[in-house]
């Protein structure tokens, strides 16, 4: 167990290093922060001074080494755009993104699993077909279009729900939450649906196909043969067996949700990390972008690790030895 964890962490290290190199290299030349910081009027001397102060005249790898050394200590420097410590900015935005991602994941699971079970059990009912068509449309609609259409319908035409922002947030220590106020909850609805819809259809189809698979197994046939009621067979045996892959995928998709939040946050002006990232791209704010990408990489690596451990805990075959065919 311990060796397994250690080996996984060792495998994660090169990933982190690559991501940090890429994230730094990625934006090193895209925009010129100097031009943005100087504004409309400045002299050449002022420009040179700033270039030197920011260390932008150093060779690439010197800049990268400096960056990496600081990053290890959780020090990403000051944002070029906002002149505030990057770590602080990201910590400020993280709750917004995480609350949004969790709500989206919750919607996806709470709606997707029952729909998947239903379509798996009653393959030929008209409702199943409707669900499947719905899921196909959901998969075929780009996220940004869904968000825009929801705003148009529920904010502009009906005026029921806010079109942007988080509403009133309450502070609990360093965490800020929108769950404690009515306006915060209302603000969460549209972005969470937008973000969750794609995952919802994914989970529904996954549950459906797993259900179909499991229902064909001898184990279920035996259960039926034993005369167990359908209800018992479906939920006690079949669903339980589909849950392992579902949980795995849902866990892995949490990372996807956080990444896709970039699009949703842009459409809804949700003040999370994704919006911070896109705004930083626009301003060529290298420290923020690099820190964000490294953070995301760290989140993925962690999620991956947890999923691996869960698998390890759930699936006894893995414990015997990881060589062999499968």
């Amino acid at each position: 167990m311990f060796a397994f964890i250690v080996s996984r962490i060792l495998q994660a290290l090169p990933v982190m290093l690559t991501v940090s190199l890429i994230s730094f290299a990625m934006f090193a030349y895209v925009g010129d922060p100097v031009a943005i910081m100087l504004g409309q009027d400045f002299t050449e001397a002022q420009r040179q001074a700033l270039v030197q102060q920011l260390g932008l005249d150093q060779p690439f790898f010197v800049q990268f080494a400096t960056f990496l050394g600081n990053a290890v200590q959780g020090e990403f420097g000051l944002s070029y755009r906002l002149s505030r410590p990057v770590a602080e900015l990201i910590a400020e935005r993280a709750p917004a993104t995480l609350e949004l991602a969790l709500c989206a994941a919750f919607i996806a699971l709470a709606v997707g699993v029952p729909m998947g079970v239903y379509t798996g059990l009653y393959r030929h009912s008209w409702l199943s077909r409707f669900f499947l068509t719905f899921s196909l449309i959901g998969v075929s609609l780009p996220t940004f279009l869904i968000g825009i259409l929801l705003i148009l319908t529920f904010s502009v035409w009906l005026g029921w729900l806010p079109s942007f922002g988080r509403g009133d947030v309450a502070r609990l220590g360093w965490w800020s939450t929108g769950f404690l106020s009515w306006s915060g909850i209302k603000a969460l609805i549209l972005p969470a649906i937008t973000l969750g819809l794609f995952q919802l259809t994914l989970i529904m189809r996954l549950v459906r196909s797993e259900m179909l698979e499991v229902l064909r197994t001898d184990y279920i046939k035996f259960a039926r043969a034993r005369g167990l009621p359908n209800r018992m067979v479906h939920f006690g045996h079949a669903l339980k067996n589909t849950l392992v892959p579902v949980i795995t995928i849902a866990g892995l998709q949490l990372g996807a949700i956080i990444a896709f939040a970039i699009v949703t946050e842009t459409v809804f002006q949700w003040p999370g990390m994704g919006l911070l990232f896109i705004q930083s791209v626009g301003a060529a704010d290298i420290p923020v972008m690099a820190a964000y990408l490294m953070l995301i990489a760290a989140v993925f690596v962690t999620i991956n690790l947890i999923v691996d451990l869960l698998y390890y805990a759930v699936d006894p075959r893995l414990r015997i030895g990881r060589g062999g065919g499968h």
């Binding site: 705003i151 079109s163 942007f164 922002g165 002006q269 705004q279």
Partner: peptide
């Protein structure tokens, strides 16, 4: 003051009274 970068969202917020 609440900045909204997206044009469409900014207009929507004005129209919906936010």
């Amino acid at each position: 003051y609440r900045p909204i970068a997206s044009d469409a969202t900014r207009v929507a917020a004005l129209l919906s009274g936010e």
